[in-house]
Design a protein around this nucleic acid. Structure first.
Lengths: 227, 227
DNA sequence: GACCCGCTGTCAGATTCTGGCAGCAGCAAA
DNA sequence: TTTGCTGCTGCCAGAATCTGACAGCGGGTC
């Protein structure tokens, strides 16, 4: 195994362990001496990987992912950049900021001529949606990732309010509004919730008893059957 | 200079030369023996770089770009994927196909757990725009890249038709319609052309006398002043 | 035929990588 | 405080890899 491959492997292994891992463990897992492991970690940090080491504990990788070298055509790069620009203008502030950061990282490594080409693809968006949500979508995304229940108040189209406890498993982007898809404990069925009608969001921390993937699949199957 | 850096450099140098370049030239430019260059080329090809070599001519790199290893946070990856999905659903077939290809490349290297996270971000789009253009946007994009004049027929909002010769320098995505921004020889001013109202597109092959970047800048300045 | 060029094999020397050892510093539990 | 675990660095010799030079093949062009 070449060194560069090993470095990518190392990042992957670090991703899997959420708790701090000792260098000894990592070294064994890759099949390399601990001295070499320290060198590898240093190299990765030098390349911008957010790895943190603390004496007495071990190494932790901040949530993230290292993309290996990839070959893209001009048009593929253009598509990625255009898409990211679109996301950067969406009202979902968290994702928009992430898109901006990602664009900066990509632009930093693009050759000049390609960057100029991209300037010729302008993205004009209409006025921002007035349906800004009062809740933090980051909490929703985290709950989906961790498969944990969410509590909140919901105001439906008629203005009637209700308190919900749901099992969220997807976040959909529908034209101008964002919609959380979840299993609603009250209705005992799948429900869509417009995020701009939600309030009082509470991350319960309680795991729900099903797998996100399975629910997503089931929900999609239901969509196909009815529509 | 480490080997991996040199490989990236090699791709960049190949990008700059549009004509075939001999291995000898490349080797000199990087400061390495020709034997090593052949090895480097072989390595790059093994990594998927579309480099073609022909005896008696030299090497050519198909239009494209090799992205070096990059570190992204989960949310940045999510933003990129969401944006690419959006592009993939746009009516611009060429870009949509490119977005799909790019997504496939990215998905191929993502760890499983991250790929699952991304499934939870669904993109629901409304019905496709009915404003599909009758022209090939690829020709427009190429003309912009090469800074060459374009001829076409245009039907304005009132239905009046006219023949135009323009200097295109940007392609804008505005909600559901795509707009080509260009200097119009007839009006002697900047004009926007909805691509779905264009027909009879002709790539003249004639270069226009200004730099794309300068026109883009001037056009933007005009926008700011009037709006 | 005489080039030019891509491409491969071989091999010795240069370069880099690796593992083991020693040692320092920070932290936590005993 | 002491003990133990861990991150981190310097050093050095052996292993692994990379590199350059040479030779040779096949396919094109002049």
């Amino acid at each position: 195994m070449s060194r560069s491959e090993r470095l990518l492997d190392l990042v992957q292994i670090l991703r899997r362990h959420r708790r701090p891992v000792s260098g000894r463990t990592l070294a064994d897992e890759i099949g390399v001496s601990i001295r070499t492991l320290y060198r590898d970690i240093a190299t990765l940090q030098g390349q911008g990987a957010p790895i943190e080491g603390e004496a007495g504990l071990g190494y932790v990788l901040k949530p993230g992912f290292m993309l290996p070298p990839l070959m893209f055509t001009d048009e593929e790069i253009e598509a990625i950049v255009l898409g990211s620009r679109w996301v950067a203008k969406q009202p979902d502030e968290r994702l928009a900021a992430a898109a901006t950061d990602a664009l900066a990282k990509i632009a930093a490594v693009l050759p000049d001529d390609l960057r100029e080409d991209l300037d010729a693809t302008t993205l004009l968006v209409g006025p921002r949606s007035e349906n800004a949500e009062a809740i933090d979508l980051g909490i929703v995304r985290q709950a989906i990732r961790d498969e944990r229940k969410l509590g909140f108040f919901y105001r439906d189209a008629e203005g009637a309010a209700s308190k919900r406890l749901v099992w969220p498993f997807a976040l959909a982007f529908f034209d101008k509004v964002r919609v959380m898809v979840a299993w609603c404990e009250m209705r005992q069925d799948f429900r869509h919730f417009r995020t701009d009608r939600m309030s009082g969001l509470t991350a319960t921390g309680v795991r729900y008893p099903r797998r996100r993937q399975a629910m997503l699949k089931e929900w999609r199957a239901g969509l196909d059957a009815s529509g």
